[in-house]
Design a protein around this nucleic acid. Structure first.
Ligand SMILES: [Zn+2]
Ligand SMILES: [Zn+2]
Ligand SMILES: [Zn+2]
Ligand SMILES: [Zn+2]
Lengths: 137, 137
DNA sequence: ACCTCTAATGTTATACTATTACATATGTAA
DNA sequence: TTACATATGTAATAGTATAACATTAGAGGT
């Protein structure tokens, strides 16, 4: 079973608990809270908070999901290579969260970092907005 | 006692609880947790979490302190006019937090926002670093 | 196959963070 | 004064996360 390529490691190495938590977040697409995940996955055999938190921790570490600290929630990564750099917009009215595509963001952040003489290892940027539907209503 | 000028309102309007919580954060200069604040201020007459949280909420609203979400802690504002825009460096090793002076940051953020076509109402930026003393050791 | 080591699991209990609810008091403005 | 908004005090409870310990599953080397 070690005929695999290097790049497949990350996908294959997910354990059962990690996989079902990731699937839930993937299918949801929006931020979910740990205890909501727990309730949702009772039927899958997750019985204790720790089982959820351990899976979440690992998935965060792998960069497959992100934690949005201000709402104690977890969301599937919407990019392919965030590493541990994250950037979100959060609607101030309805709480809707979107991960900002880091394709273009990177250069902007680099400039900002350079301009302010920071030596950073990673970053987390939270931009509060009024989402489209909230702007209308 | 209402002979005051308009601009002094914000300072004078602090209530007793708000004042003693603010003083503690001011004197500390580093991020403090709500229950630590509670313990520290037992002798000042604060007996319940709610008394602390209410003071903290108000001080955050006034922009006098900021909450650092990722560590559930509160820190005195190091700028004069953050409004609700915040930017911190956080040491990945020892957890030391510093607020970034927003004097220069503002333009950089404006550029970033413009480049990424965001319409934001405010922001919170967290830059993870290795602080000087951690870099040495 | 066997041993070894590391990572993950299962379970219980507990720690930490924050809010609800309700009664009371205080300050401010008409 | 009356009315209103804001702040307080207190108790109970909700929500978030980790410690501790025993057990199991996988990966790698021999
Ligand atoms: Zn991502
Ligand atoms: Zn919205
Ligand atoms: Zn500030
Ligand atoms: Zn440090």
């Amino acid at each position: 079973m070690s005929s695999t390529h290097t790049h497949s490691k990350k996908n294959q190495s997910l354990t059962k608990n990690q996989r079902i938590v990731l699937d839930l977040l993937q299918n949801s697409g929006e931020p979910l809270k740990a205890y909501f995940i727990l309730d949702s996955l009772k039927k899958e055999g997750l019985n204790s908070p720790l089982q959820v938190y351990r899976a979440l921790d690992k998935l965060v570490e792998l960069g497959k999901i992100h934690k949005i600290e201000s709402i104690n929630s977890f969301i599937i990564c919407n990019n392919s290579n965030c590493a541990s750099n994250t950037a979100f917009t959060i609607c101030e009215r309805c709480g809707k969260v979107k991960e900002i595509k880091n394709k273009y963001l990177k250069d902007s952040v680099s400039d900002l970092v350079k301009d302010n003489q920071l030596e950073i290892t990673r970053y987390n940027l939270e931009f509060y907005v009024l989402c489209k539907s909230c702007k209308i209503n």
